[in-house]
Design a protein around this nucleic acid. Sequence first.
DNA 1: GATGCGTGGAC
DNA 2: TGTCCAAGCAT
Length: 360
Amino acid sequence: MTVQENRFDFTAFDADAVLGWYDQHARELPWRARSPELASAYHVFLSELMLQQTVVATVIPYFNEFIRRWPDIHALAAADEDDVLRAWAGLGYYARARNMVKAAREISTAREGRFPQTADELIKLPGVGPYTAGAIAAIAFAKPAVVLDGNIERVLIRFAGIDQPKKLVKNSLAERYLSVLPETRRSDFPQALMDVGAGVCTPKQAKCDICPLAAGCAARRRPNPEDLPVKPEKPAKPVRQGKIYVITNPFNQILMTRRAPTGLLGGMMGFPSSGWDKSHHDQHLLAALADARKIRLPQGFSHIFTHFRADIDVFHIQVSASWQPPENYSWAEVNPDDWPTLFRKAWQQVETFLRYVGGA
DNA sequence: GATGCGTGGAC
DNA sequence: TGTCCAAGCAT
């Protein structure tokens, strides 16, 4: 324990330089307050949930739409979960949306809308882990909480020249974070450090010439600062073959079914399919359509998930007005914006095909 | 503690 | 075009 505490040297860390850089270069973001004001906890909460493993540019339009539709924690708590999932469609990691609604309901009801202000309390909320708890406590409430995301970890690891895998040094890094955290501007500090990580000390290019921490940085003295942090090798992505069935009726509606509440694309509406997702089956429906005419679209497509690649063949089935779907399937209007990207792609192929056929 | 969980942009 | 990877969390 003591060995770890002393292993990394941050004595040259210049928090004032980071904050000075931030004063010059801070990005205006919809959820960000202008220092020394603090952003609303609701905005911080919403943005941090969306920002988990997601880049700022992707989050901005979703964040704006969410606060327009659900301007405060009570509005979000009162929202229909399916409306929230549809608004989240395309952002990915859909468990975040479901957890967000749960957390909002806890805060709105059990806490009468008052956010917990410490990381120890915040982390009890669903979807809020060590990073997000620390981020909300620090950014919204200026608490001296540990905020370690991928950016800050990378900046600190490079600064101290730590050439051990992240998972081995995470705890000592948290201690080091608190040791470099300044007494004032505790809300700005983690945001400043994250901005440095996102814009200066990036994974593939450490722009040391413009870095406010360059003076004391160990990685800068190496031939390739980008060699840090050391990363574990990744397993190869398996490929799964699958089929997606776009089934339409004469009323320009499309057949969809609710996916299981957890797991891949959990809780989202999806098209009948087979092969690419072991935990989802449409066997009964497909048996009922065994004799239907299926048109396989010429192209197919590929979709990359986190841990596998799906090579998809797309089939179009047009059923008659009298055909009744089995239980758990329903006709939906064509709203690709409400669907996960996998199904948007499948629809895109059918739409192109139908336009070609219809226009010919 | 390893694994499952999306997506789109940068290069 | 393929590879990498981004403000992580739950189990």
